[in-house]
Design a binder for these strands. Structure first.
Lengths: 238, 238
DNA sequence: TTTCTTAGCGTATTTTTTACGCTAAGTTTG
DNA sequence: CAAACTTAGCGTAAAAAATACGCTAAGAAA
């Protein structure tokens, strides 16, 4: 029935630098680009393997991570790639089924220097034309799921610094969803939700009226979430 | 790194009989209950394996199917279960990673007689207390995803006959989401969406005013979907 | 014939979304 | 140093969507 299969994990790690959405890539053998990933070991489950990969690449333990889907085309890993895998991991695999995840990180100095050390780099998502194996498919699916998730749950804050301006938040939505946003109505919605709170700090050195910094109050969100209980529950176009 | 792993697929097959949500279960060795599933073969990818399992159990090829997630706890399959799997499939596996799917089917006579033949049966979801291995966890996750998906996309119709009354649709939502529904406002929403069309057939032999049968027009839905382009895009409580 | 149940239409109220005017607070430019 | 420019941030009015709920209609059952 089955010969020699392996299971791997691949992570689409997203970051936002204030202008555009980036994705963490590594260069295998100094050649083709791929997503960070690894075969799983005997003792670990797959989320653990994903966190292991992320910790190694970013130095962080506490990262937003979500399963995307499984990629299992028997031909998804070509002979050359298979050779590389068998050599690199010291195994004798004929097929690799991979479980893809997407992760969200805040692009601060710490993570930037860590990824630089690992010879990984951040590439603007829109400029990524091809990747090794089926990794481009994985990236596309991750983008679709990120768009969907960003409209249905407050995960944008995983990509922003702890303190952010409302403009930065809007810019993130514009970059990921490709929508136009009316500054004034967006503001109203954000302030009105009750769990995005103004701090007393302001931007400095910007060529316009400085904006206040806000923070996302996770606990307040959880409380609101319980209250909400929408009965207006059907929304088939989402 | 890796010894002898296998990949399997497990399907949570949901059906609705007009009263409550049911799930297809099979009895292994006449003993404990489990979800229908199978190891994958060398040549097939995982969705193909899932469709193979579904075709065998239900006799149907055209079924709504969606990936749920991967279950990969190294200890998820106990020694006894492993023994059974190795014996049944003629393999020498030490670990089985499973990819769970959920499927939606219309409970008509055809499928009922087919599942009866296969010695599978439909059990009311709320009455399922325990299943083999981690299959109860899989079922729970499937239920959560079904609830979510039913509010965001028109998949309810995969569980209903082609012609259905608005009451039947409402009953389905009540059963799955556990919500109260105002008949009159629900009706308005359904009729108003533009892609649920009245036929000229009516219920017969019911002890009240007979309701008209409606059909879901998939093509019209797709067209509406493209038009919609919601800018009211943020809804974090869903 | 009355009662019971659900179908199905309508209307008024409230809530949410959208469109958009306007002033404020900074920097940059001439 | 004033004018121009940019984004912040408040407000208001109109439009659209969701909700609450009254009412009649059509059948079977009592």
């Amino acid at each position: 029935m089955q010969t020699n299969h392996s299971v791997s994990v691949d992570c689409v790690v997203f970051g936002f630098d204030g202008r555009s959405l980036k994705c963490l890539l590594i260069k295998r053998d100094g050649q083709d680009l791929k997503l960070p990933g690894s075969l799983i070991t005997d003792q670990e489950d797959i989320p653990t393997a994903a966190y292991r990969v992320l910790a190694e690449m970013t130095g962080l333990r506490d990262i937003f991570l979500k399963e995307l889907s499984v990629f299992s085309d028997p031909a998804r890993v070509g002979d050359k790639d298979l050779e590389w895998i068998n050599h690199f991991y010291g195994v004798q695999t004929t097929r690799v089924v991979t479980v893809a995840y997407y992760a969200l990180v805040k692009l601060d100095n710490k993570i930037m220097s860590h990824t630089r050390e690992k010879e990984a780099f951040w590439k603007e998502v829109v400029s990524i034309t091809s990747l090794a194996m089926d990794h481009k498919d994985i990236l596309n699916k991750a983008l679709a799921m990120l768009s969907r998730d960003m409209t249905h749950s407050p995960i944008a804050f995983e990509l922003l610094p702890r303190k952010f301006t409302i403009r930065e938040l809007a810019d993130l939505y514009k970059a990921v969803l490709g929508v136009e946003i009316d500054n004034r109505n967006f503001r109203k919605k954000i302030i009105g939700c009750g769990y995005i709170l103004a701090t007393d700090e302001k931007e400095k050195g910007v060529a316009h009226k400085p904006a206040a910094y806000y923070i996302f109050d996770k606990h307040r969100y959880k409380r609101e979430e319980k209250k909400t209980r929408k009965l207006n529950f059907i929304n088939w176009n989402e």
